[in-house]
Structure formats: structure tokens, C-alpha cells
Nucleic acid binder design. Sequence first.
DNA 1: CGCGAGGATATTTTT
DNA 2: TATCCTCGCG
Length: 788
Amino acid sequence: MSIYDTLNREQYKACMRTEGPVLILAGAGSGKTRVITHRIAYLMEECDVNPWNILAITFTNKAAGEMRERVDRLIGFGSESVWISTFHSMCVRILRRHSDLIGYDHNFTIYDTDDQKTLIRQICARMGIDTKQLRERTIMSAISAAKDKLQTAINYKDTHKIDFEQQQIGDVYEEYERQLRKNNAFDFDDLLMKTVELFNAREEVLANYQERFRYIMVDEYQDTNEAQFQLVRMLAAKHRNLCVVGDDDQSIYKFRGADIRNILDFEKVYPDAMVVKLEQNYRSTQTILDAANHVIRNNARRKDKKLWTDAGSGAKIHFRSFNTGIEEASFIAEDVKKRIHENPSLHFRDFAVLYRTNAQSRLLEDRFVQESIPYNIVGGHNFYDRMEVKDILSYLRTIDNGRDDINTQRILNVPKRGIGKTTSDRVMAYAQAMGISFMEALERLDDIPDITRAKTKLQAFTDLIHRLRDEAKTSSVGDLINAIVEETEYEQYLKDYDEENSEDRMDNVGELISKAAAYEQDAAEDAEGDGPSLSGFLEEVALVADIDQLGDDDDRVLLMTLHSAKGLEFPFVYLAGMDENIFPSYMSINSDDEDGIEEERRLAYVGITRAKKDLTLTHAASRMMRGEVQFYGVSRFVLEIPEDLLDETPRAGRRVFGEEKSPDDDADMPWSDGYREHRTPFAGRGTERAKASAKKDTRLKAVYVKPHTSEGRKPFIAKMGSLDSLQKGLPAGVKPDYDIGDRVSHVKYGEGTVLSLEKGPKDYKVKVDFDEAGQKVMYAAFAKLSKV
DNA sequence: CGCGAGGATATTTTT
DNA sequence: TATCCTCGCG
């Protein structure tokens, strides 16, 4: 009995064919990770392949980590020498070694979207381009799209000769490239493009990696772009042991340059490729698979496949329609509770709520807080996007790479040093005139014209950076951050800047220090790496995805976009916002690009197939969108599911804004009772409403569930603000332990007397007469008042 | 040069 | 609805 006996026939076939090109068309849940891990194990164990000669590319760092773990579990040794990483991490690793060959220092900085935007804005200002007419965003995505296709600025201008706007973009692109080079920085797309460039420019470097990576495996191949395709093609050119795994039905990153043809045409590029189809699904019930199959069948351009399972049909798919997004959110929260109540063996982590846009998370989150259900939100605001974290990172980048003008400028006046824009611009102008970096200009203060009053301040800043650089030579990254905080009196700055949240913000800085410490630990242990370094830490920070930070030890309901959910699975899945114009999004509906809807449909397919046992689709007839009520019909994807798979029949109820009568009088508003009587198509059928109200009567008593937090490692994936009420304060809506007339104390306002306490729609509102600060009204859960 | 107020404006998905 | 940006004042 060997570990390979557990594979099914097709999986086994894919696993054993180690030589030559292999295309594995792996439907959702068909065990493709199993195949890759077993294949790696097989190569090492049975074919005597040196782990060093194996490269496996995954979509996220999290997937890479899991894959390594699984290989380890299979054979128990050697997996640390296999290169398992994302495209971006792999490229950074290569570039760190050879960037000098294409004109960059080894300690290059990786620009995030904000850095990019700042740079583009500067360039536009210099070139006299009005960013109101031509938005930075537009320029950025045009440049990004070009880079995904390996198109240089010159190339771009050549192919877009006719269009004036595109010529402008081309000019900005050209200058942007020059600036990146000057700043010794790469943007995300550069990591791929410049690696290809490197390989093209230096045959011997490519040959070196070709020789090294004798066996190459690429996961999620359907979401590779041109640059990634070229990269893989080049690397595999010598040994041709290339195994790609993917599912054309799950290609959902076209907006990021993914080209579905990479997988559809694989056999054209490699005519001798062996093709294996994995159609047996080990994840979901037949009902769920049938629904997925029926939806995806509506796409024209795809390789035909049909998922099946021998797991049995399972429960029907639930469909629920609501009047408003609020009701939808309430239902989901209550339903999770109900199911856990009915079946105590279930955990919160068995549930996931998926939606099309990040904005939809808000209502759900509110509701989950109210119901005291522990949850995590993936995406939205990244930890590394927080102001205080960015400030520190900007310092680190400035210390690490003095040529990075963008980050130097960013912190020049953070904390406030009384150095304004005028001064900053003058330094910049001088730097440009002399062809030196911003930092170098600061080091020659005496030569800069018109610098008089600000001179001492600038000198102080320069000295500060120099001191920190010295510190960096000997200190760990964590200590360096501490030094930055100390030297800049950052804590005081935070207090002045935002008294209310300064503590939380300081906590985040602390969290960053822990991250740095963890990084240094890992890097020191990684035999294949170059050891810990500031550049290394900054690089890791730049390349983490939201999903990467997700620990699997937390027992929480997960809330995330459908995109983030790719590759994951949960026993119970809710697809919220199955509304026309939300999902599929109005962008894809109104676009003339036919494939837009097809991509959305693939996204629906991804969503449905995340569910193992139980799937619930919800729809809301009306929603608040940017402060306005919008009306939506049921998503076409729901209607594409055969009725007999659903426990409730959806009504199309499609309706275009402005048509029919507009709901401008209260009786017609979706939340009024009158509305329901008039609006049967939207309210769903009578039985459902009866059920809904019955549910209300038997509503579970709210149980406050203490969210699980592991010591020293706070889950910063969730938005801090909302978690606070769970972690530090009271759960919302629970009566506080003080009453009218009691003396209470508040962190900021000091002591006072409670004047009134009344139950609001969400939470108790408490009015306090503070001795010092006067009268304030606040929500009990957030006020964190304590009785004295 | 800093700060606040107010208006404009945006909203798909992300390595 | 919430953020971002600009403008004007101290």
C-alpha cells in the first residue's frame, strides 16, 4: 500500500506522467492539490529527483504554504528545498539576485498601488495633464494592462498611434518607467515583466534557471497572464517537464490580465501534451454540482466537462428573497446561529458568506456584531494599508532604499515637522535639476536655492534618517521600528492626530513589530533564503494577499468576496446579493464585451462550488447604494439553476430603475408594511413571509460568544473598529451594567454621571454628563464606560 | 504652513 | 454613504 493508491485513475495518471508537458483540466473540488502534492512526492521519492530541481507555482502564499505542508506530510522530508511560491515571490527572488544586470540595485523597493498613484500624480502634474480629465486610475490600469502583456512604453505608443488620450498615457508610461528606475523601484507588474526582460537580456541567467527547474508545476493556470505564460514557457523550454493545472470554468481574473487562452490553447503550444480531465468531485453534494453544471453550461467558450460525485444528492439549495439588504443580512446571521444551535457539532468556521463586492460586507458585519457571531472579513482594508503602518513602512523603505523619492517625500513631514509642500517641492525641483535623489538633495541643503527658514527642520530630518540608517546596520527590523517610533515620538503624534483611536493605531504598530520578528525568525530558518534583511521584510510585506494572513485556527465565520474564496471550501456557504446588477455587476451587463457576463458566470460557478454540504442563495429587492435606494431583480444565475434543485422558486422580478412607479412615498418604500402587500414579486411568496415571521417568534436568544483570540496574535484581518466592540467593550444591544444616576468613567472624558439610558435600534444609547467634558451621547458598546 | 469646512465624486473583482 | 480633495482662512 503506497500513498499513491489513494488516487483515482485519472489522478494517478496525471501523477505518474512526470516527463513532458501535461495539462490537467481539474474541475472544482476534483483534488488537484492532491495531484500536485503527490506528484512532487513521487518525483522526489520514486524518481530520485532532487527537490531543488522542482518548482511549483501557486496562486497565493497561503496555498504555497499549505502545499509545502502537505508534501511534508506525505514524505516527511525535503520539502523545504522545493521552490513552492507565487509568481510574484518567485520573480522577486530572482530579481534580488540579478537586478543589477538590468540596471537596478539589489535593494529595490516594491511599489504598492498608493506609491504608484502618487508617482503618476506627480508625473501628470509635471506634464500638465489634468487628472480630472484623465484619471490616475485609468492611466494606472492602462499601464498595468500593457505590462501584463509585456508591452513597453515605446511599444504601447506605437500600437496606439491614433488615439490622443492613449498617446498621453503612453507618454506618462514612458516617464513612469524612467521614474521607477530612478527610484530603484518595481511595481507589481514589473516583477513579472522585468524578470522576462532579464531572461531575454541574459541568456546565461535563464539557462541557469532552466537547468535548475527541471520539473515545473503551475496551479490555477487559467488565471495566468501573458507575462506569466512567457515566464513559464521560457523556464520550461529546456527540459519541457511542464505540468499545468487549471479549470477554464474558474478563470475569474481577466481584469488583471489573465488570458483564458493560455489554458485553452495549451495543446497548441505543446502538441505532445498529455491531457487529463478530473471530473470526479470530492467536495460537494450532487445537488450543488448539478446547480453549478447548469449555470456554467450557459457559457459558450469552454471545454466541456461535467462534475459528478458519488457522495449523494444532499439537501436542496436554499433560495431566499428579501425586501432589503438589511433583512438579507439579518437572515444570514440568524440562520448561521440557528444551524449551530440545531447541530452543536458545527463550528463557526464551517460557514462562509460570499459576495460580489467588498461594500456588501458592511451590512453583514453590522449584523454579525449585533448577533455576537465571531467572524473574520477577508479583504477590504488590508492591515498594511493602515495609515500608521504605512508611515512606518515608508520610513523603512526610505532607510532601505535612499533612492525611493516617493516614500521619502511621504514621511518628510510625518510626524509634523513644519515642513510644507513649498519646501518639499523646492527640494524636489533641485533634485530633478541635478539628477539626484530627493534624499541626496537633502544632504546638500546648502546648495538648494530658496531654502532658508525650513533649513534647520530639513537638516533635522536628514540627521534622523542617517541615525536610523546606522541603527539599521546593526539592529533587527523589529528594533529598527522601535527606534523609528522613539526617535520620531510617533506615539505622541498619533495622540495628537487622532486621540480616539491612537491606542488601536499604536497596537497596529506593535503588530507590525511582531510581524517583523516573525519574519526574521522564518528567514533565519529558511535554508534556501538569503537570511533576514530589511529588504526581505519589506518584500514580504508588499506581496502578502489578504487571504494569506488568514489563520485556520480561528473559529469564525468568514466573510469575503467571491474572488478571495477561490480555492477554498466550506460545509455551509451563503452567496449574498444574488441580484441583477450586483452579481452580475452592472459593469459587466452594460459593457459591450460579451465575455464580461461569461466571466461573472464563472465567478458564480466558483461561488457555488465552494459549498460542500449546504448552499444558500439570497437576494434583496432593494439596497442602499451610495446613499440611494436601488431596486434589483433576482440574479440571472439563480434563474439558471433548475427549479427542482431549489427549495423555493425565485421570481425574476426584474425591474429597471425609473420604470414603473418610483417609490417616493413612504407607503411604497420597501421597509414599510404597505410595500409588502403591493410588491409580491419582490417580497417573495407568502409562504416565505409566513415562515420568516414565524422564525422571528422563535428567535434564538442572543448568546454572547466570546471571539477566539490567540494570545499575542490579534486577527487583524477583520476591521478593528467592529472587533473592538466584541473584544474590549460590550456586545452591542446588551444592557450595560450601569444605570441612570450611576457614576461612570470614560477613557477620554473622565468621570461623569449617567443622565439617561435608552434602547436604540441597534444598541443602548447612553447620555452622560461628564465633570470635565460636559454632556455626551454615545452608544454603550463603543463608549466602553465602566462603573465607578 | 496647518487646519477645517465643505463640495465633489465614486464604487467590481486584486497579486 | 464615506472618502477624498480643494480652497480659504488664521
